[in-house]
Write a protein that binds this DNA or RNA. Structure first.
Lengths: 134, 134
DNA sequence: ATGATAACGGAAACGGTTATCATCTTCGAA
DNA sequence: TTCGAAGATGATAACCGTTTCCGTTATCAT
């Protein structure tokens, strides 16, 4: 059980700072490629590879939320709430609300346990049309 | 005189029959590529493109379940239960159980309504390690 | 049987993501 | 302050599942 990957602090680099700054710029979910383009525009060039690595690392530590959209692309946003939560996403404009559902977590864990499953995780996203777009 | 855009029945082709037969062969979720290989092995050659198209069409009509795994690959299985349900998937061997969670459906709808969202849909998959693989 | 058109399928393109590997940076120990 | 090992970077090249392209073939109502 030496799987506590987030033990060693990440080194402080210009690139990681830049990615954080870019993330702080908005509260919408954005793809790695969009963030890469935004960084290039503001003059803080960061390699695409590094953007991917950095976002993956941030997601690992919980510093950002990462969700996989229906088309398979992964998008990131700095986390408003800490801890486990889900998202209510407008399929028109992308507006997102974070929602917590303790009951759902318990339900998922219980169902999995009833079937004898271990190391349980789950994905849950709610899609709809937000008030503005309705 | 159809009252709406009810879909025209799909034509009966050797390929669609073959894909159905391949799906009937097991009850695990399989990828389009796996099904394509299985079809080739049993001598019923079906183009990869056609396998993709056929599976997408079947998923559209509800004839098969399609879920997107954590790595982004889409996998298919013929549907055991009709109606809305979710899946408990072993991330090791792919074994799957279908689970219904009326309470979760209600929760999702309620949360979305509270935020003013309409035309609500949701995705929910539970991943874990099944008894055999633990 | 016939013709309109749905379906097919091999090849090439696509697009997001990851691997490679040579080079540069960080940071703690001396 | 200096030094160097481990960490981090990034341009490029794969990778891989999926979709598009488009000429050919099969289906089915008439």
């Amino acid at each position: 059980m030496s799987s506590d990957g987030a033990r060693v602090a990440l080194r402080a680099t210009r690139q990681r700072t830049a990615v954080r700054a870019a993330l702080a710029d908005g509260d919408q979910f954005r793809s790695a490629q969009e963030l890469h383009a935004a960084l290039r525009e503001r003059g803080a060039g960061v390699g695409l590879t590094t953007v991917y690595r950095t976002l993956a690392a941030f997601a690992e530590t919980g510093e950002v939320d990462a969700i996989t959209r229906e088309d398979g692309e992964t998008v990131y946003r700095r986390c408003a709430e800490s801890g486990h939560h889900h998202h209510l996403v407008c399929r028109e404009c992308g507006r997102t609300a974070e929602v917590a559902g303790p009951a759902v977590e318990r339900w998922a864990d219980r169902v999995a346990a009833e079937h004898g499953y271990t190391e349980v995780a789950h994905t849950l996203e709610i899609f709809g049309r937000c008030p503005n777009c309705t």
